[in-house]
Design a protein around this nucleic acid. Structure first.
Lengths: 245, 245
DNA sequence: AGGGAAAAGTTGTATATACAATACGCATCC
DNA sequence: GGATGCGTATTGTATATACAACTTTTCCCT
């Protein structure tokens, strides 16, 4: 499972800087060492260091000013919203530690509402998983997921502390169609406890449904603490102006 | 205003490919010329061509497969959530009646946080508007918007009961870059009153910032009643698996 | 015909070099 | 004091080269 190949050199440079920023070696707004300095310190060529810095700049981690230097950008609170983003990836990219706690992983009859969504007869069985995701041991997401057995027959045999359901399902077959619905809600007592929410703290709920070519595949309700998590995206529109016809 | 400097060479290569794809020279799924071929055709070095292709790949325009070639990706599906949707349009499309109540429309000094976002000195004046949007006389959105005077000099002269700020600003110049951040929050007493919220009812907050080519343009905080409003999108993903032989 | 090795083609990474463009401090000049 | 210009530091672009990694095609041997 693990990728044993060594990280590419430019990736090593990126990791070096990212962990340094996460560790507070360089704080937001501060200047990081110059390309030349990093080149000597890390033993890579300037072009390799340059590439690493350019990519970090494109990712919004750094702001580079020609003639002046490279500066740490304040972290943009973001998760690519409409992509099938993976929360574990998201957390580790921020340089934090991700842990998943599996509360349930079984097969259970679909309730009326769920059955309709999956175009199944009432009480037909579906796979179900319930996982709490922690960022630095703070709960940031409750994931309640129904999966069609026809789509992922081996779902129950997976170890979801090692690989997220998201990533596992993606590896089977990328979805053909996706739906996202976002709303703000008041958690019930159980959710409040699982996410360690303060009294009356709202939560941000993201309902994501996916379809494979064969039919409905998954239905996940992702609940986040309102005060500790936000969804975001930022992108350039420039490229979409020129269109044929 | 126009940038008279010649486009960078790698940008020229990107433009060459983008226009070729737009013109149908290479269709989705098809293979584009190899780096070597492009290098000879365009008179750039392979590294320069390589950089152009790598960036197009990162942008999702191309799919590159080591050892095989570079293939045109089907255009990425965009969702209404990330577009600049207009709530008046949204409401009328549902067949309901939209009404806007303008609570404020003035010029006011930017607070510390806002000034930083607009790259302005503290207390420089910005245009500000505050509008409640009603769907069938039920409040569904509180719109608190800051606008750069440099971007929209005539902003204060508009009648925002007739045209939404959104639509007006779009007519000046479509944004070059957009950021959306969504979170769930607890409204303060004032918001609670304006949106006629029940006690402890959470709200869904969408912070949208836009940039024009010249710099920061607008910053809107759109607050919705959690129980009466949700954001959603559904779209088809292209088939990324198949690649022609 | 089939299998498999070899070759060719294509992209990925890394380096060295050169020069251009920009920012900033410092000395100079008026 | 203030404006000007210059040198240095730093990032941006472009090129040539080399080799690695991977895919596809060719071709030879069985």
């Amino acid at each position: 499972m693990d990728d044993l190949r060594p990280e590419k050199l430019y990736e090593q440079v990126k990791t070096y800087l990212r962990t340094g920023i996460a560790a507070g070696t360089w704080k937001a707004g501060e200047k990081i060492p110059s390309e030349f300095e990093l080149m000597e310190r890390l033993g890579a060529s300037r072009m390799t260091v340059h590439r690493a810095l350019r990519e970090l700049s494109a990712e919004g981690v750094l702001l580079r000013v020609q003639g002046a230097g490279s500066f740490v950008q304040p972290p943009a609170p973001r998760s690519p919203l409409l992509e099938i983003y993976d929360i574990a990836e998201d957390i580790t990219r921020r340089g934090h530690v991700h842990r998943a706690q599996v509360l349930a992983l079984d097969s259970r009859p679909a309730g009326a509402e769920i059955a309709v969504e999956f175009s199944l007869r009432h009480r037909t069985k579906l796979f179900y998983s319930e996982i709490v995701h922690f960022e630095n041991e703070v709960p940031v997401q409750l994931e309640e997921r129904y999966v069609s057995p026809a789509f992922a027959p081996d779902y129950l045999a997976q170890n979801f502390t090692a690989i997220t359901p998201n990533r596992y399902l993606q590896s089977i077959e990328p979805p053909h169609e996706v739906e996202h619905i976002i709303h703000a809600g008041q958690p019930d007592a159980r959710v409040q406890r699982l996410l360690q929410l303060a009294a009356h703290e709202p939560c941000l709920c993201l309902l994501r449904r996916t379809w494979a070519k064969a039919g409905p595949a998954t239905r996940s309700l992702l609940t986040h603490p309102g005060s500790r998590y936000s969804l975001g995206s930022r992108y350039k529109l420039a490229d979409f102006n020129a269109r044929p016809g």
